[in-house]
């Protein structure tokens, strides 16, 4: 059971890491649009290269 003296602090360090990652995610707007990326990944087909149409006014 003595391993607990190592494991509990270790757990706390991991928790601190998770909190840090979460705060970073909030800060960098990861939670701003929760629906868009799910759709975007399906639709962005990269086999077709889009050219810039130059006749656009």
């Amino acid at each position: 059971m003595e391993s607990l003296y190592l494991l509990v602090p270790l757990a706390l360090i991991i928790a601190a890491g998770i909190v840090w990652v979460f705060l970073w995610a909030v800060k960098s707007d990861q939670f701003e649009d929760l629906e868009g990326p799910a759709h975007r990944i399906i639709m962005d087909d990269d086999d077709k290269v889009k050219e810039k149409p130059d006749n656009e006014s």
Partner: peptide, 26 residues
């Protein structure tokens, strides 16, 4: 629908002079 977002993003980004365009789906 989501395709509208895609269409608008692609269209805007293809315009000469537009540097970046992003659309929030929600």
């Amino acid at each position: 629908c989501a395709a509208c977002i895609w269409l608008n993003e692609q269209h805007l980004n293809a315009l000469p002079g537009v540097i970046s365009a992003s659309i929030n789906y929600s």
